[in-house]
Computed example of a mutant assay.
Amino acid sequence: MGVVIPTGRTSPHDWESGEGLLGVDDPAEVDAAFERGEGHLGTAVIGLAFNCSLEEASPRIVRAMRLPDIAQRGFAFTAAGTAARLNGELTPELYAALRDEGPVGTADDAIRDTLTFVPFRQLPPWFKWQMVRITVLDKLEYWRTRSEDAVGDAWRARAGQEESSMGDGDWAWPPKPGRDARTAEFLLRLDEGMLGYFREMASEMVGRFGISRAEAVARINERYQGLDIEPYPDLMCHEGPEFWAHGAYYYPDERDRLPTGDVHADAAIDFTRLRVRPLPPQGSPVWTLRPE
């Protein structure tokens, strides 16, 4: 027999088996299922993500993220990723839930979906930094894979020779910043427009933090080398250079927030409690300008 839901009609969905729950389109039915302690609530909130407004689906998705059943909890994070895909945005409570879970385990795919389908400018600061982190990690994984493939090819082609006898072609791991990725003083490949953008970032650091230009460039190199920067305007340009300047100088605060350079957006941040990132060690290749 079907379950009678708060609207007075009989549910067409089988809550015992989970059959048909991807078609759920009534938030009240899902609320009643939560109260009954049904076992397929994660599946049901995916249905809400597909069939209801973001505002209706969001609080139920967040609630399902706290379920004790790890599989259903995983489906709830799938629902969050689905909501990002379909709406091109998330609610503040969904952003907060994904940030609290972090970019590991059950939330990883949902966070990546959010970074893919929500316009960069609309992302909260923590998610923008995840975009940078994932870009760096993906780039490093690409180089690692190329290195392993090339080493294997070289061994097969030149059996019996020491690995050290091979040339250090463009697959060499790790890539040598001074040769493989440098534009003027920055250890990245930059076109003229992005070179100007990074130089403005360094100028922001000099003006805001009272450091030398050599130190500013070294901090930028240490923080951002390894990024695959597109020609101007790269994705970074959705924010001003001051946004990325703060990330190269400060650690996030206890709530994982970084200053943005905007007076109003930064009003809640206590700058006196922010920790400054350590100075890059002297002799590091990130120091491309002579200290003043």
Rank of each mutant, 00 (worst) to 15 (best):
M1V: 15
I5A: 09
P6I: 11
P6M: 13
T7S: 12
T7H: 08
G8N: 07
P12Y: 08
W15R: 02
E16A: 08
G18R: 00
G20F: 08
G20Y: 08
V24E: 00
D25V: 02
D26W: 00
D26P: 00
P27Q: 01
P27N: 01
A32R: 02
F34M: 02
R36L: 08
R36F: 06
E38S: 05
E38H: 13
E38A: 11
A44T: 03
A44L: 10
V45F: 10
I46G: 05
A49T: 09
F50W: 11
F50T: 14
F50I: 15
F50V: 13
C52Y: 00
E56K: 06
R60A: 01
I61F: 04
V62N: 12
R63N: 00
M65P: 09
R66L: 15
R66Q: 10
R66N: 11
D69V: 07
D69C: 12
D69S: 04
Q72T: 13
G74Q: 04
F75P: 01
T78C: 06
A83L: 01
A84G: 08
G88Q: 09
G88W: 00
G88D: 02
L94F: 10
A97F: 08
L98K: 04
R99V: 09
E101C: 14
V104M: 07
V104R: 13
G105D: 10
T106Y: 00
A110I: 13
R112N: 07
T116P: 01
Q130S: 05
M131D: 08
R133Q: 12
D138A: 12
E141H: 09
E141N: 10
W143N: 13
A150P: 05
V151Y: 08
W155H: 15
A157Y: 01
R158G: 07
Q161G: 02
E163I: 09
M166K: 06
G167T: 15
A172N: 11
W173M: 08
P174S: 04
P177A: 00
G178S: 11
R179D: 14
D180A: 11
D180H: 12
T183L: 11
T183S: 11
A184T: 14
E185I: 13
E185Q: 15
R189F: 12
M194L: 08
L195W: 06
M201C: 07
S203I: 03
V206K: 00
G210D: 01
A214I: 08
A214Y: 00
R219I: 04
E222W: 11
R223Y: 03
D228W: 06
I229E: 06
E230D: 09
P233W: 04
D234Q: 07
W244Y: 03
G247Q: 05
G247D: 05
R255G: 14
R257E: 14
P259Y: 08
T260Y: 02
D262P: 08
A267I: 15
A268T: 12
I269Q: 04
D270S: 03
D270R: 03
R273P: 09
P278I: 10
P281G: 02
G283D: 00
G283L: 02
